[in-house]
Structure formats: structure tokens, C-alpha cells
Design a protein around this nucleic acid. Structure first.
Length: 839
DNA sequence: ACTCACCGGGG
DNA sequence: GTGTACGGTGAGT
């Protein structure tokens, strides 16, 4: 546990970060506009439901809309009139809402309170609350319509004057409660379900099987053998979910596929989707849909988000996208690929082509059951791998867990925490958008490419958390954050994260404690990294401050410059630098100790609070372009960064050549480069390589129909290869191999050799009659050697050797990668050197 | 050949 | 009721 010193500022900082109400075990909150909140709490395997009242509230920059009519006008319904009243004790913290609206009308009807807050005149200086949100909204809307003398339909049109959040956020911000206090991720009851359907479109297909599992031991399938049985199947799903009573429902693409499909089928069949927990009336909550806009601007997309009382709905696809947003190295976001990427796919996992699932089910239902259960098991694995941090965030930020799992870290998480702090302190909220003197041009981090070529003895050093450290060290926060909440939170997070990192390292690996501390430090990292981005956010962010953000990047560039200057002074050879990190080469004969000593010496000269870290050392580096390089570790692993050094075609012979040539180049073995190149050319010309070595593997995107429509205007090799092989059926998404044989545009399809690559099993069965390919024949095709040799020699040079161009002088490059005999004026290969980057 | 729009996922 | 982007590909000239 993290010890805390009992001091008032620390107490306040903890409240900023974690809220203040100690209620433990909240696993779900449902709040409505009428001021009713329902809270589900878990204690062991027991879940209790309680009800609470809250007073819907918002921040306002003006009271004009509430005071503009003093007596109820004839055309306004009685319900929207105002009655002055003292707030009673029943409202928690009601003392903060005691001022009555002066001189408002008072007929029977609703009560609205307000409190004037401390703050500048252009801020949201009033906190307004009412018994019921609709009362509040109606009063403001009709007041504004009167004041502005035009029809106003909703608060949306008054964004300038009012700041509001959703009902659950209102409840959590006001009460100081958060989710999951005292719970571990393993305590959550999580259930995964996955639909198997006869088509992707619910108008054309139906559900025939549902796999369900949970982390309390359930793993089963529900099935509908006939179309007439589908309604019963949906009912059985709802019953089972209510019986198991999970806190969380999860699946991959839950919001994009399973729930819309389920909703449509339930609608057609007239089955209620009672997936939620029981509400006070005794009825089970029904699935609700909400529209959600993702991103703003030209690329804005809408999606439907679903919600249900009492359970959190989690789409692991969101978590995957977020993970890749940071990592940027995932091949695809499909469940199967992602499971393999994380190493959570089991060895005997069943793979089926999507379009073949239903047919397979009719022949062999057991296989489809296993397949679907493998799916939900992988979703559980993904959840454990990816949702720990959102879980930890939910015990800090005043939002639902399901929202924190996909919310943007700045506007979606950090800002609600700031608003909660201002609400708690009773201080006016700054208004967004009116930033004076728009900072001229925003300059970001510095990127330098100092040298291209090959370096030996390379060290990577970088400044740990550069931007947040600068914010803390120089106390650069948003000018409008009068309470200094952002910097407080940031400082506290930095300390706590360090402690959690240490705790995670000392706990037994894989233990509940280790997972908890690791998830918490990951959550804190998300918030820490969001702090700078939030200041630079657009005008929609309440506390955005582009000048402060510029100040941070300016100081960041200065720090980087200081590091680079120091390295140069010490005679290091700079290679490339980007924002907060640098690659450089050290002199021959240097030891790791010397490298580390240099980094810490330079780091010691940096301002207090800015830490330069020794991140790694490499035997060699090929610098190609900014952010495009290859590294060779001291244990001889090759690491390739950036698209410029990768091949998208991935023909095995080319990949192999590139790896070997990179290794030789980086170890200075230029004869080796020439040798590998000539050997590859020779293997092509002697047809030692087989078709399988040359085949490109691509993913099909067109259906047979759509390809046939454009075949004559734009033939594509992959489809041509299939058609020539007699295959007239395939599925978009299928990956196929093909190679180019002798003869004009003669592309040959190469069936997969083993059954392990799932993609082809199904169509092979379907096409078996059409084309009569036996396993032996498959092997025979893969071993064919009738490829177009000169085409592949050209590919070798233009597509693979090309990636080594920066490593050599132009004439040396041409000589090294000439497939022909040495020319008259060629120099001996032994005398060719790569372009060295040296001290 | 080149630009523009759209998609990514799910059966 | 609120906040990614980037690379690949298809369609349209």
C-alpha cells in the first residue's frame, strides 16, 4: 500500500485524484435526469443495490435566463416557473447551493437553486441545481428564448453560457464517489458472449448460436436449430445473463456487431432485450442505444453506443485500438490476429473462415461450438491484458468504467477530474474558447537527422516523461486553472506512479498485487501523458492554454539542444534525435560503464526534475531516414523501425535477403553483402528457389463478382492467379499467395501447403471438385520453378536492395547490387566500405 | 496515372 | 452529447 502523510494539501491532492467519498465496491451506477441514482456495490460474490437522490446541476456563466421572467408568463407551462427556496439538508453539501435566485417568480412548481462562485466575470460563475433536470433545462431554455427573442429548442444551442455533463457524471462529481474502491480486477464479474450468425447483416441473417463464458467458470453455447427457434435463443441469452448477473459484459466489436445485430433481431422477433440488472420497480433493465460522435471535423464518425443499467458494456476492439495508438505495431485489429499478437491464442484454437461458419455448423456443429468458445475465451484474455488500466482509471475519474474504457484521456478523463475539483471547491469554472492572442504558430518537438549510413557502438538516451516533467519542474500549467489542479494532479501522479512501479516490481510476477500495481501505474501514465496534450487541446477544452503548451515544447527543445551540445562537446557522433531522445555513436573501445557515466554526467547538468535516461546500447545502427533505421543488438537481434525499411509484399526470398544484407552491412562485412546478393541472384537464375519462396501474400478485398466487373480494365495479379487456377469462388478477406511465371502476366496461385493456415480450408473443400487439388499437388505447385527469373531479379534490386541505399556511396551501391559480372573499372569488393558514421 | 473517399471490425 | 490517425485500397476520372 502507498503510505500517505496526513497533511492538508496532500489530502486535497488525493481528493483531486481519487474523489473523497469512501463507498467501496461500486461496480455500476445508473443515474437519470429526474435525480435518481442507482448504485450497485459488490462485496465478495454479493451485489447490493441502493438508491440515492441527487440534484441535477450545471455551471452557468449568467443568471439572465433564470431571472428574465419574474412572474410566470402566460405562455410558459407552470412546471417551468421558479420558486425561491432555501436548500434543505437533504442535499449532500447543500450549503454550497444556498443562495436563492433573487426575485424570481414563485408560483407552485419546481425549485431551482444557484450559488455564485468565486471567479472572473467571464467564467462560469454560477452553479445551478434543481430537483429535476428537465425542470432546469426547460427553465433555462424558455428564459433564453425570451432573452434572445428567438426559438431555442435545447441547451445544445446555449453551449456558450452553460457547461454540463451527463447524469452519471453529475452524480459522481457531486458525491465524490468513484467506481471500484477496494476491488481488484479479478473481483469484477465479467461475462463474454459472442453471436454466430448466418450473415453479417441482421436484415439478411439470423443468430443460430451464442457462446457464453464468464470468469466464474461458465462456458457454454446456446443454439437455435431452426429459424423459428431464434426468439427463444435470444430469450435464453437474456435469462442466462440475468442468472449469472455479471458486472461487465464484453466482446470484440460488441458495439459494432453483436449488440446492433441482437437489437435488430430482437426487434423483428418482438423479444425484449432485458440484459440489465433489476431496477427498483422489479423489472430488469433493457438495453438502450445512444448516438456517439467520435472525433470532430471532416473525419467525424458516428457510432451507436449501447448502455444498460447495472452492467458495464466493454468492447475490446476499443481497447485494442487504443493500445495500437501507442504501440503502432499491430498487423490488424481482428480478434484472431490480436490474440496471436498478445500470445493468448491457444495452440489448439479452432479457426474458421467467417462466411463458412454456418455451413460448417450444419455439417459439424461441434467444431463451431469450439470455435465460438475459443472466441469468447480470447476476448477474456484480451480483457485481462488491456482493461486493467481503464479499471484503475475508473477508481479515479468521475465517469462510468465503460466510458473510461474508450474515452479520450484529455477531454474524456482529465477534464472531468478538473471539473470535479472545481465543483468541490466551489470555484467558478473557466470558459473555453476565448483565448486571446492565439499563439502564432505552434511548434512541437524537434526532430533532427544528423547522419545517414552505418554506425557502430550506438547508445540511445532519452529524457523520461519530458513534457510532464517540464510542466512540474517549471510549474507550467493552464493560466485559467486558478486552483492549480492540473499541476497538483500531475505532481501527485508522478509520485504515486513511481511508488506503484516499485510495488509492481517487488510483488510476485503475475500475482494480484503485481497486476494491480501495474494497472495502476499504467493508468497514471495515461493521465500523466494526457496533461500536456490537454493544454494544447482545441478551444473546446475548458482549461486549454496554447501558450503554456508552447512554453513546454520550447523548453523541451532547449533541453534536447542542451543534451545534443553536450554530446558533441564530448566528441560523440550524433545520428538522430526526436523530441526527447537521441541516438549517438561512442568512440571505439568504450565500455558500457563509460557510456552510462557520460549519460548521467550530461543528465546531471539538466535542470532539477529532468532526468536523462540511458535507454539502451546497440552494436550497430543503419540510419536511413528520420525514424527509419535498423538496430543490431549486442546479442545479434535485428530490430527494424519505420516503414521505409520494411517490405509490404513480403516475398520470402526478398525478406531473407534483406535481413542477411542488413546484418552484413551493419557488421561491415561488405563482401558478405555482395555474396548474399549474388547467391540470391544465382538461386533465382538456377531456379534453386521454389515458387513458395517467391510468392507474395496479399489479402483479397473484392468478391468474385466485383472483380469480374473490372477485370478487363484493371486486372490484378492476385485475382488473375485464382481465375487461371480455375477458382471462381473466394471470400474478401482471404489471404492468397501467388507468383509470376514465365509468359506475359502469367500469375500462378499457390495454395497453402498446410492446414494450419485456416483461411483456405473451407474453400479448398468447396473448390475441391472444381479444381481437384490434392495435398500432394499443393506441394507440387509450391515447389514449382517456372517463375519469371528476370522479374524477380529486378524485384530484388528495386524493392529490397534499395533499402540499403543510404548505407553506401552511389557508385559502390550500383556495383554491389549489379546482378552481372564485375565491370572493368569496378574496385575490389573488399575495398568497399559502408558510409560510416563515426566520432 | 492520379486524386479523393473510405475503411479498419463483425458472420 | 464531445474529441486519433495513418496507411492501404477502391472508385472515379
Amino acid at each position: 500500500m502507498i503510505s500517505s502523510i496526513n497533511s492538508a494539501p496532500l489530502e486535497r491532492e488525493n481528493e483531486y485524484l481519487f474523489g473523497w467519498d469512501p463507498t467501496p465496491g461500486i461496480v455500476s451506477v445508473w443515474a437519470q435526469r429526474d435525480g435518481q441514482a442507482i448504485i450497485w456495490q459488490r462485496e465478495g460474490e454479493h451485489v447490493t443495490r441502493t438508491e440515492a437522490r441527487f440534484y441535477p446541476w450545471l455551471f452557468a456563466s449568467t443568471l439572465d435566463d433564470l431571472t428574465s421572467f419574474r412572474t410566470p408568463p402566460d405562455n410558459v407551462a407552470a412546471a417551468s416557473t421558479l420558486r425561491v427556496s432555501q436548500a434543505g439538508r437533504k442535499y449532500p453539501g447543500a450549503d454550497r447551493l444556498v443562495n436563492a435566485v433573487p426575485g424570481s417568480g414563485h408560483s407552485n412548481g419546481a425549485t431551482i437553486w444557484y450559488r455564485e462562485l468565486d471567479g472572473p466575470s467571464d467564467a462560469y460563475r454560477y452553479l445551478i441545481a434543481a430537483r429535476d433536470w428537465r425542470t432546469l433545462e426547460r427553465a433555462i431554455v424558455s428564459g433564453a428564448a425570451r432573452r434572445l427573442d428567438r426559438p431555442i429548442k435545447s441547451l445544445n444551442e446555449l453551449e456558450d453560457s452553460y457547461y454540463r455533463v451527463g447524469p452519471v457524471e453529475q452524480y459522481l462529481m457531486y458525491s465524490g464517489r468513484v467506481y471500484f474502491r477496494g476491488l481488484n480486477y479479478e473481483d469484477l464479474h465479467r461475462l463474454q458472449f459472442d453471436l454466430e450468425t448466418t450473415a453479417l447483416d441482421p436484415h439478411r441473417g439470423r443468430i443460430f448460436l451464442i457462446a457464453i463464458r464468464d470468469n466464474r467458470g461458465l462456458a457454454t453455447t446456446l443454439e437455435a436449430s431452426t429459424p423459428e427457434d431464434e426468439a427463444r435463443l435470444i430469450g435464453a441469452l437474456c435469462d442466462l445473463i440475468r442468472e449469472r448477473d455479471p458486472d461487465v459484459i464484453e466482446n470484440h466489436n460488441l458495439f459494432g456487431f453483436d449488440l446492433p445485430f441482437l437489437e435488430q433481431r430482437a426487434r423483428v422477433l418482438g423479444v425484449p432485450l432485458a440484459l440489465g440488472r433489476q431496477l427498483p420497480g422489479g423489472r430488469a433493465a433493457v438495453l438502450e442505444r445512444l448516438q456517439e460522435t467520435l472525433a470532430i471535423g471532416p473525419d467525424a464518425r458516428r457510432r451507436t453506443r449501447y448502455s444498460v443499467a447495472g452492467r458495464e458494456l466493454i468492447d475490446t476492439l476499443d481497447a485494442v485500438r487504443r493500445h495500437d495508438f501507442v504501440m503502432r505495431d499491430m498487423p490488424s485489429y481482428s480478434l484472431k490476429d490480436v490474440a496471436r499478437y498478445f500470445g493468448i491464442a491457444s495452440a489448439d484454437r479452432v479457426y474458421l473462415e467467417g462466411a463458412a461458419i454456418f455451413d460448417t455448423y450444419r455439417r459439424d456443429p461441434a467444431t463451431v461450438r469450439r470455435y465460438a468458445l475459443d472466441d469468447v475465451a480470447e476476448v477474456d484474455g484480451l480483457s485481462r491484458r488491456l482493461l486493467g488500466a481503464p479499471f484503475a482509471l475508473a477508481s479515479m475519474a468521475p465517469r462510468r468504467y465503460e466510458r473510461l474504457a474508450s474515452a479520450g484521456p484529455a477531454m474524456g478523463i482529465l477534464e472531468p477530474m478538473l471539473v470535479r475539483a472545481y465543483l468541490r471547491a466551489g470555484v467558478a469554472l473557466p470558459r473555453q474558447g476565448n483565448q486571446q492572442g492565439e499563439a502564432a504558430m505552434h511548434e512541437g518537438g524537434a526532430v533532427h537527422l544528423f547522419a545517414t549510413g552505418v554506425a557502430e557502438r550506438v547508445v540511445k538516451a532519452d529524457v523520461a516523461s519530458l513534457y510532464p516533467s517540464l510542466m512540474c519542474t517549471f510549474q507550467i500549467g493552464p493560466a485559467r486553472d486558478r486552483l492549480g489542479v492540473l499541476l497538483s494532479i500531475l505532481g501527485r501522479l508522478t509520485d504515486l506512479r513511481l511508488a506503484h512501479k516499485v510495488a509492481a516490481r517487488t510483488a510476485r510476477p503475475g500475482s494480484i498485487e503485481a497486476n494491480h500495481h501495474d494497472a495502476t501505474q499504467a493508468a497514471m501514465k495515461i493521465l500523466i501523458n494526457a496533461a500536456y496534450g490537454y493544454m494544447g487541446a482545441g478551444s473546446m477544452a475548458l482549461f486549454a492554454d496554447s501558450r503554456a503548451a508552447d512554453e513546454v515544447t520550447r523548453r523541451g527543445r532547449a533541453i534536447l539542444t542542451q543534451v545534443l551540445d553536450a554530446l558533441r562537446q564530448h566528441g560523440m557522433a550524433l545520428i538522430e534525435a526526436d523530441t526527447d531522445g537521441v541516438y549517438f555513436a561512442v568512440p571505439a573501445g568504450w565500455t558500457e560503464e563509460q557510456e552510462r557515466a557520460l549519460v548521467s554526467k550530461i543528465g546531471a547538468e539538466l535542470p532539477e526534475g529532468i532526468h536523462l535516461e540511458y535507454e539502451g546500447r546497440y552494436r550497430a545502427m543503419l540510419s536511413h531516414e528520420v525514424k527509419n533505421y535498423a538496430l543490431l543488438t549486442y546479442d545479434s537481434r535485428l530490430i527494424v523501425h519505420g516503414v521505409a525499411l520494411r517490405s509490404s509484399r513480403a516475398e520470402p526470398f526478398g525478406e531473407r535477403f534483406l535481413r542477411q544484407a542488413l546484418l552484413c552491412t551493419m557488421t561491415g562485412d561488405i563482401p558478405g553483402v555482395r555474396k548474399v546478393f549474388l547467391e540470391t541472384v544465382a538461386a533465382l537464375r538456377s531456379r534453386t528457389l521454389t515458387a513458395a519462396d517467391l510468392a507474395a501474400r496479399v489479402r483479397l478485398s473484392k468478391t468474385p463478382e466485383s472483380y469480374l466487373a473490372i477485370k478487363n480494365t484493371r486486372p490484378e495479379p492476385a485475382y488473375e492467379a485464382l481465375l487461371r487456377a480455375g477458382r471462381t469462388r473466394w471470400y474478401p478477406g482471404e489471404r492468397v499467395r501467388f507468383y509470376r511465371a514465365r509468359g506475359k502476366n502469367n500469375y500462378v496461385w499457390l495454395p497453402e501447403e498446410t492446414a494450419e493456415t485456416s483461411t483456405s480450408n473451407d474453400w479448398l473443400e468447396r473448390n475441391e471438385q472444381d479444381i481437384a487439388v490434392t495435398p500432394e499437388q499443393r506441394g507440387a505447385i509450391a515447389g514449382r520453378r517456372d517463375y519469371d527469373v528476370e522479374h524477380y531479379v529486378r524485384t530484388l534490386v528495386t524493392s529490397y536492395a534499395e533499402r540499403l541505399r543510404k548505407a553506401f556511396a552511389p557508385e559502390d551501391f550500383d556495383q554491389l547490387f549489379s546482378p552481372d559480372q564485375p565491370g572493368l573499372f569496378d574496385r575490389p569488393v573488399e575495398s568497399i566500405e559502408p558510409v560510416w558514421i563515426r566520432c
